[in-house]
Design a protein around this nucleic acid. Structure first.
Length: 177
DNA sequence: TATAAGATCTCCT
DNA sequence: GGAGATCTTATAT
């Protein structure tokens, strides 16, 4: 997991194609990561831009940490901490493709389509909630596979109102069109 | 203590 | 394709 120690904009594309696995209530669910988004310390859109707070503390921890926050008071979004300790870099897992435990995802989502098509959906499908915040990879959340096996394309980010022009959003281009 | 803003998803048309 | 739902965090007084 030493490859997680790099800058978020370098680690983000490497996560594409890897498998994200969670174990909640004895149910195992896995998705292949197809969309990520990097957040750097200098990024006005990042939660760490204004400095450390009790809430974003996990983002300033060691690489391999998990940072979960609530979006719009309704949904959960999961990040993987990258960069050296104290840098405040992380990669947002925006989307993926179900590979294992899809029946469980369908039950959690209540839908058969769009199971992991967005940050909030992905967290709901995998059962990720606030209890994941502050944990480390290998505990509740696990990433397996070989980093950097997929070709990717950098695209402008969406869902934010600042620094939109920075191409820190990475989408797998080999499997997904 | 009060107010404003936010890395989204779902339903309705 | 468009608007609403809903809670937490940070900043100012």
């Amino acid at each position: 997991m030493l490859w997680l120690g790099g800058p978020a904009d370098e680690v983000a594309p490497r996560l594409l194609g890897m498998v994200l696995t969670t174990r909640v209530d004895g149910l195992v669910t896995s998705v292949e990561i197809t969309e990520t988004e990097g957040y750097l310390p200098d990024d006005p859109a990042s939660h760490t831009f204004r400095g450390p707070t009790p809430r974003n503390a996990p983002m300033f921890g060691a690489p391999g940490g998990v940072y979960v926050y609530r979006s719009y008071g309704i949904h959960w979004c999961v990040n993987v901490v990258t960069g050296p300790v104290g840098s405040g870099e992380a990669v947002l897992i925006r989307g993926g493709e179900p590979t294992e435990g899809r029946a469980t995802m369908m039950r959690r989502r209540g839908r058969a389509d769009h199971l992991t098509d967005g940050p909030g959906k992905l967290c709901q499908a995998l059962g990720i909630d606030g209890s994941f915040d502050g944990t480390r990879l290998g505990e509740l959340l696990e990433i397996s596979g070989v980093p950097g096996t997929r070709t990717w394309v950098a695209t402008p980010r969406v869902g934010i109102s600042v620094a939109v022009e920075h191409p820190l959003r990475f989408v797998a281009s080999q499997d997904a069109g």
